[in-house]
Simulated scan of single mutants.
Amino acid sequence: MALLAASALSVSVEPSAAVTAGMREFPAAGTFTFVVPLDVTGLHVDAWGAGGGGSGAILAGGPPPLGFSRAGFGGGGGGYVHGALTVLPGQQIAITVGVGGAGGAVGSGGPVGVSGSTGATTSVSRGGTELMRADGGKGAGIFPVTSAGGVAPAPTALGGGGVVRPGGKPGGTIDGQTGPGLAPSDVLRTPGCGDGGAGGSYIGSADQGSPGSSGGPGCLVISWT
């Protein structure tokens, strides 16, 4: 399967011929239209929200050696949802795959402006009605306010028979990352999908520190039998 180009992408997928089984993967952030194939009346959907951004290194009191400094924290992994949808051949299913949260900048002169941002939601809708969603992971905070880093969404009840699993545990310092929501081992997931961004590094008094990295985009897989 070819990977779709990331960022604000809008794609319409034409209906396929009658089939007994199939799968479509949406591994990049953007908005898409999936047209239900001929003779298909049920879809299985696996979706991951985007990861939260890591926080930047903190230079408390200014660039070293003026004050206490430390590495950032990893962002939270995006949540995971699985659901079964009843559909009709030719119906249009709207898909939004969330973009990863931005990484935080390096803080200079104090812990300001270094938090990562929350990853965006991945969702499935039909006729303007949201059927299922996987929320994005939280952006990592700054020391000492939220020193544990980002967290993934709590489980919530969803339509379409979906059940959310929360994302992985918060990341550590330096280049820590978090995993996305956990799916069964046999479920396809694009590498990096839903991962939390790494925290910015800081390794010594001569180091000016680095910003946090962005969280991974969400992804979504539709299959039918």
Rank of each mutant, 00 (worst) to 15 (best):
S7N: 09
A8G: 15
S10E: 10
V11T: 09
E14N: 06
P15F: 02
S16E: 13
V19P: 05
R24T: 06
T33Y: 05
F34W: 04
V36L: 04
D39S: 14
V40N: 05
L43I: 09
A47K: 00
A47R: 01
G49A: 02
A50V: 07
G51S: 03
G54M: 01
L59A: 04
G61W: 14
P65F: 02
P65C: 05
P65G: 08
L66V: 10
G67L: 08
R70K: 13
R70Q: 11
G74V: 02
G74W: 01
G79H: 00
Y80H: 12
L88G: 11
L88H: 09
L88F: 07
Q91C: 04
Q92K: 15
Q92V: 05
I95P: 02
I95A: 04
G101P: 04
A102F: 01
G104D: 03
G104W: 06
V106G: 02
V106P: 00
G107W: 08
G107D: 13
S108C: 12
S108E: 15
G110I: 12
G110E: 14
G110V: 08
G110C: 11
G110R: 10
T122S: 09
T122N: 03
S123R: 10
S123N: 03
V124L: 06
S125Q: 11
E130T: 11
E130V: 13
E130P: 00
M132T: 08
D135V: 13
G136Q: 06
G137N: 08
G139P: 02
A148F: 11
G149K: 04
G149R: 02
G150H: 00
V151I: 10
G159T: 02
V164F: 08
V164S: 12
G167S: 05
G172L: 05
G172M: 03
T173Y: 09
I174S: 12
I174Q: 12
D175V: 15
G176Y: 02
G176V: 03
G179W: 05
P180D: 06
P184S: 10
V187R: 12
V187D: 08
L188N: 09
L188C: 07
D195M: 15
G196L: 14
G199N: 06
G200A: 08
G200M: 05
S201Y: 04
Y202D: 03
G204W: 07
D207F: 12
S210T: 15
G215S: 06
G215L: 08
G216E: 06
P217C: 10
L220Q: 00
L220I: 02
S223Y: 10
S223N: 13
T225S: 15
T225L: 10
T225I: 12
